[in-house]
């Protein structure tokens, strides 16, 4: 079963003249297969930071982060790379794509076991089939975000972290995309950081960041 555990984690960010505490002695356990977890909260509360900690690119000051049995605190760079490749993906808020690969290739790049039919079908479901051969530089920001979402949901990693996945999408695509995420969820653990309360209806569990802590609602 997919599982993310924070054990008594403290994380601070350095400011010019002070240390800003983002999380203090936080402990949570998020686990399950085929579940959508939403981390809710306005901007600046530490949602993205939390996903980055789960992903292992931000190191905590104190406490352990254990993802599917890997203690990220004690892992070497090489272990972390293997862990990411096999276990977890993160869709960043700025959803970077590879500019010299087409939309179709960008999806295929994250999972080369996908058949062309599967890619075509998924592209069609969110109205991207007609631009499958376009390069990311020729796409609108909304189209780029939808490609990045497909990249992350169609990969073969058990845990997918999505940072504000609908921020650049209008009403129409917001729900289309969420339905697609549900469809391809299968046995994955999907953790979405968002400020959009419309997405709550898709969540199996909702967490909020309050007083430097992550709290189950």
């Amino acid at each position: 079963m997919n599982e993310i555990r924070l054990d008594n984690v403290t994380f601070t960010r350095s400011n010019i003249d002070s240390e800003l505490i983002i999380f203090k002695n936080t402990s949570i356990n998020i686990s399950g297969n085929g579940k959508i977890i939403i981390i809710l909260g306005p901007s600046g509360t530490g949602k993205s930071t939390l996903l980055n900690i789960f992903f292992g690119i931000l190191e905590t000051n104190k406490g352990n982060v254990i993802v599917n049995g890997h203690n990220l605190k004690t892992s070497s760079n090489k272990d972390l790379m293997n862990f990411r490749r096999d276990t977890i993906s993160l869709m960043f808020q700025n959803f970077p794509l590879i500019n010299w690969l087409s939309c179709e290739e960008n999806i295929w790049y994250m999972n080369d076991n996908l058949s062309q039919e599967e890619i075509m079908e998924s592209l069609d479901e969110i109205d991207l089939l007609s631009i499958k051969d376009y390069f990311p530089t020729n796409l609108s920001i909304g189209q780029r975000q939808r490609i990045a979402l497909l990249q992350n949901i169609l990969n073969n990693r058990g845990i997918n972290l999505l940072d504000e996945p609908t921020s650049a999408l209008g009403e129409k695509y917001k729900f289309k995309v969420m339905n697609l995420l549900k469809k391809y969820l299968k046995s994955k653990l999907l953790i979405i950081a968002t400020h959009d309360k419309d997405l709550l209806k898709y969540a199996d569990e909702v967490y909020e960041i309050q007083n430097k802590n992550v709290v189950l609602k």
């Binding site: 490749r85 970077p96 794509l97 500019n99």
Partner: peptide, 13 residues
């Protein structure tokens, strides 16, 4: 560099 960072974040050494 963003492209390389993306490769790296996807587990490519």
């Amino acid at each position: 560099n963003r492209e390389f960072a993306l490769y790296f974040s996807n587990g490519i050494s």
